[in-house]
Amino acid sequence: MGLVLALLTFAALAAIPLFPDLVGGPATITLFARMILYAIAAVSLNLILGYGGLVSFGHAAYLGLGGYTVGILYAHFISGSPFLGLIPGTNQLLVTVPAAMLVSGLFALAIGALSLRTTGVQFIMITLAFAQMVFFLFVSLKVYGGDDGLIVRRPNVLFDLNLRDTTTMYYIGLVALAAYVWLVARIVRSRFGRVLTGLRQNERRMAAIGISTYRYKLVAFVIAGMGAGLAGALMANLQRFVSPDMLAWTKSGELMIMVILGGAGSLIGPIWGAIALVGMETALAGWTEHWQFWLGPILICIVLFARGGLYGFVASLLKRDGR
């Protein structure tokens, strides 16, 4: 059933740009592209949050680091001076995206190595605090725009594709999403994944069968950070702009909500969650300036009353029909 739902989801997503009129014109394609990129970030968070039970409240930091990697490499590409006098700038997507994932992964390694020494509520506070530290770092980097952010005037280059075209960006995002979901699907079924899901269910048991849990958590934390870096790198190309907003703590909260809303610990639930939350925010924002006034209580109700998220809801419906 999971596989069918996943294939249906991706088929629907692939079909969206074919019917621009149905979904409300090209402007909407940009909106859908944003949903797709947030979906990548949500799927990556789900790997540690949903499968591993690690409540990381700082995931937007890796999203922002990915975005800033693209932005900073572009700025040095334009100015011609290498970054730190060592690394030349570039606008090649096939370079910037892996670089973004590397940077996010390295930060995740450092932050994870410290945060994972603790558990529970301390872990939540610490991941939030370190993300805030990264936020302040970019706010203070006046060279790269500080508070105002950094404009990426032209998107990166990938072969002969025109990345200014939102439909092209949309499909690039979709391919990246599919690849990352495939990766996560393999990981959670692997030996490593068995340990990861075991950690969520009962960490004491894992120690009692001889598993040193720290290393497993750290590796998962890094894989998740790299996924968010991928999302951030593509987002910088879609919006042609990066700013500290991208790694604000509220963004981390939104990513967590996407996961929970869609269904933590399910493969494609977070994709639905990202689409639903971005869609809901856009709809509310089109209706009232004070959309957060309504979103807040909606969130509380989701947490209090809707366990299992959208995916859990659909799965239970299908099960009932099946009998």
Binding site: R186, I187, R189, S190, R191, F192, G193, R194, V195, I211, R215, Y216, V219
Partner: peptide, 10 residues
């Protein structure tokens, strides 16, 4: 052999 990421453990 816990750090194997691709083969289906089941």
């Amino acid at each position: 052999h816990g750090f194997r990421f691709f083969r289906d453990a089941r």
